[in-house]
Amino acid sequence: MADLKVKIGDITFSNPLIAASGTFGFGHEYNEFYPLSKLGGISCKGITLQKRDGNPPPRIAETPSGILNAVGLQNPGVDHFISEDLPWLKQQDTVIIANIAGNTTEDYCKMAEKLSDSDVDMIELNISCPNVKSGGVQFGTSCESVGAITSAVRKYCKKPLVVKLSPNVTDIAEIAKAAEANGADVISMINTLTGMKIDINTRRPIIRNNTGGLSGAAVFPVAVRMVWQVANAVKIPIIGMGGITTWQDAVEMMIAGATALQIGTVLFNDPYAPIKICEGMNKFLDDNNISSVTELTGTIKPW
């Protein structure tokens, strides 16, 4: 049995697999399949300062090897999360990451302040949601805006700060450097790629929001490339995500430079995917006489 534990700062994850924000709610549903302690951590559904209703349906469309979604950050608000969801989550013996999204810099700061006094283990700054009109990705697409929001939130954030990057940018390595220079402890990447699907008979987009975020196996090679580029550009650890579907994908993403991983879309196909991926990684490590999964990170041998 290889050691699957990974460490980010002072926080230890029992394995590298973290449920990705927006695919896992606040954990209650998947806890009906298996104990959440099987996961290294949970990045909770993105929360905002006030409750949000989200976008009108349809909110999802299937595409080749992936899906588009535009939920629009439906959530009960940060106070409800802290009082109603977090106490239960903290009993599940897994790392709890709060994912926050705001309309304004002040929103992000207020949430970071509230969550810093709570029991969450980490705060993930969502500056990459492509599906809301204001906030979200508008903070995440230039080095200046990423630097400004990271540095503003840093002043209020007493927890390890993860900055979640959008792939919908020209040079993601420069964006990552701006986050690092302004106080990010960790980079998580990638959020979804903006996409679209049109019904050729009605000529209407399937998704009511017209555009949505693409995830699933289709985006995996893009995510691997971006993780590799960012790993070459920053010193802080990376939580890699984007279309991880099999244990081979998980190993590949770590070799590209990820210290830990998030998985999301695959859960809709197979709720047990995280457990199967852990088993597969474990066997790979044993077969290759590697004692700890951490030895994979960044071991790519580029041409």
């Binding site: 927006g22 695919t23 896992f24 709610g25 209650h28 549903e29 998947y30 009906e32 559904k45 209703d53 989200g54 976008n55 009108p56 349906p57 349809p58 909110r59 999802i60 469309a61 899906i67 979604n69 939920v71 439906q74 399937i206 859960l267 809709f268 709720p271």
Partner: peptide
Amino acid sequence: EERMGCGIGACLVCACKTRTGENGGEEY
């Protein structure tokens, strides 16, 4: 019926507007 993702209530895509909020208010 609505286009569905996880099927268990975690991903929040299969939204339907209902009068089930506080005091019968509308919500998804």
